[in-house]
């Protein structure tokens, strides 16, 4: 059985860029993410308290933004023959508010063979909102299968 096309380590080139579709982050997303993760911090869940904060309203969990961009990027690119993520270095630059539409741009900035059957591809990612302001950015190290000869 052959599945959908996947790209192996050898086929990925440093300098390749990708851009995801946009996604509007809703109140529902934040409420559901609080339920799934267990993170009910008031900054995500207490609308009245947040009226008095510097943000003026509830903001999305930073990790919700991180998770959404991960899902978004894979929607518009041929998937890597990926075995998972080895690590990430990430900065939360600006809040994501209810109704913001985010997308992610990524570039392959590094490749390293780590064993006979896999390598690590480093992607620099920038998550922007509808005003093109950077809300999150960082690097992820993705483990990718090498093509078997």
């Amino acid at each position: 059985m052959t599945g959908p096309p996947r790209r192996y380590f050898e086929e990925i080139e440093v300098g390749e860029t990708y851009e995801s579709p946009g996604r509007t982050v809703t109140e529902t997303d934040i409420v559901l993410f609080a339920g799934v993760s267990g993170d009910y911090n008031v900054i995500h869940t207490d609308a009245e308290f947040m009226k008095t904060s510097i943000f003026g309203e509830r903001i999305a969990h930073g990790l919700l933004g991180l998770s959404i961009q991960s899902g978004l990027l894979t929607r518009w690119m041929t998937p890597y023959a990926s075995l998972g993520v080895a690590g990430l270095r990430w900065k939360f630059k600006n809040p994501i508010k209810i109704g913001d539409t985010i997308r992610v741009r990524a570039e392959v900035t590094g490749k390293k063979e780590t064993s006979a059957d896999q390598g690590v591809v480093t992607l620099a990612r920038t998550v922007v909102n509808q005003r093109d302001e950077v809300v999150q950015e960082g690097e992820t190290d993705v483990i990718v299968e090498r093509r078997r000869e």
Partner: peptide, 8 residues
């Protein structure tokens, strides 16, 4: 649930 909410 996580995959449904985030798409990841």
């Amino acid at each position: 649930m996580y995959a449904g909410v985030t798409g990841d």
